[in-house]
Amino acid sequence: MERFTEGSGRRIVTVDNTTVDIACAIHSLSDADLVRLKALARLWARGLPGGLGWADVLHEAIARALEGSRKWPPDVPILAFLSGIMRSICDDQWRRARRELEVLVRGEDVADLCASGDEVKSPSPERVVAAAQSLAAVDRLFACDPLALKIIAGLAEGLTPTEICKFYGMSERQYDSTRKRMRRALVRCGLEWSVP
């Protein structure tokens, strides 16, 4: 990794250039980028336990990015990088909520659970319910757009665009124009965010 080193007397100060680049990239985001960033934060923050809001998620994502615990790959846009971190925060938050619940139920110490490497494999019932509600909310967001609903269903199942088109008998042109409508709806929703 490229590093920047400055000597000063006996002290050598080394700055991780990635941290500087990340800070610079975030500071340089355009207005449209900021709108997209907020939409991303709202997307990931939706339904999180512990009352975490989009601003908390975004703040934490920036802090983690600057911390350098996660490296910024060269060809990944800064928004995609931050979105990936927000995904991790989302996962972490659900794991923490599950651990806290176990502490309450079993009366164990959180530190013991963490120290024993008690990695939770299955999701908590709360997470399953919240996920089902969020999926329903996304469906409602696109309720007036049958093609978008098909794409949503395909994406949730992990299908590729080609597979979605083939499975639902959609042309490439229909797929692309539907995705454009979806993108606008998602950004809009990121601004207003109250999915009916």
Binding site: W94, V128, L186
Partner: peptide, 24 residues
């Protein structure tokens, strides 16, 4: 549902990332 949701959010997140300025 949680696995479906994570996959979906990731895909929708990518859509937001790739949204053009005009679309925004």
């Amino acid at each position: 549902p949680h696995a479906d949701l994570m996959r979906l959010l990731e895909a929708l997140g990518n859509e937001i990332v790739t949204a053009t300025e005009l679309e925004v």
